[in-house]
């Protein structure tokens, strides 16, 4: 399949991205570059200077909404992806509405509580929509311990599944980008397998 045919295929699909931090901003950029038709991105945070060690933002965007900043940044590399943004904190009530109609959802949230809440909500309220989870990305090195696992047709996990983020183990660009790239790659695989 040539590049034009791949892009034409991907242009028909809509991917949700829950969170526009390290995982979400980098994953969104990769999916836009690949030519995914529509991205639905949610995040209620502002860009902070401390985010720039791993998130796809720039110094002059500090203080702006992450969803506005990522939309702006994607527009600088592609005109082919429609970006729908929601500057809202996700909860069990708004997730089904925000991500209804998506062909796949990327879990790119920060805390383990939010990750669990999103996955449980999508799997129960939006059955059949695959969720691609990021879990275990902090620190450095141990490249081969970052892995991809398919649980079933609706649940995939990318990451080492043991490196939790805390004061002594900070998320850094290289491993965050590996997991974000793996999530984007999983999304592409799911979408390319659709008829």
């Amino acid at each position: 399949m040539n590049n034009a045919a791949i892009r034409e295929h991907l242009s028909r699909y809509k991917a949700g991205i829950a969170g526009a931090g390290g995982l979400g901003s980098n994953c969104a950029m990769a999916l836009a570059r690949a030519g995914v038709g529509t991205l639905v991105i949610s995040d209620h945070d502002l860009v902070e200077a401390s985010n720039l060690n791993r998130q796809y933002y720039f110094l002059n965007q500090v203080g702006t909404l992450k969803v506005s900043a990522i939309k702006e940044n994607i527009a600088r590399v592609s005109e082919n992806t429609e970006i729908i943004t929601h500057a809202i904190k996700l909860d069990r009530n708004n997730i089904p509405e925000i991500f209804a109609g998506c062909d796949v959802i990327v879990e790119a949230l920060d805390t383990d509580e939010m990750k669990q809440m999103l996955i449980e909500t999508v799997q129960t309220a939006l059955p059949g929509i695959p969720v691609v989870i990021g879990s275990g990305l902090s620190g450095w090195g141990k490249s081969n311990e970052i892995r991809y696992r398919k649980i079933d047709d609706t649940l995939y996990v990318c990451g080492d599944e043991y490196s939790t983020s805390d004061e002594d183990l900070t998320p850094m660009a290289p491993r965050v980008l590996m997991v974000a790239g793996m999530q984007a790659n999983t999304v592409i695989e799911i979408l390319m397998n659709k008829p």
């Binding site: 995982l23 979400g24 989870i133 990021g134 996990v157 939790t164 998320p171």
Partner: peptide, 10 residues
């Protein structure tokens, strides 16, 4: 039984 381990960080 399938279990996914959730680690903070994103």
């Amino acid at each position: 039984v399938q279990m996914i381990y959730l680690m903070s960080g994103g």
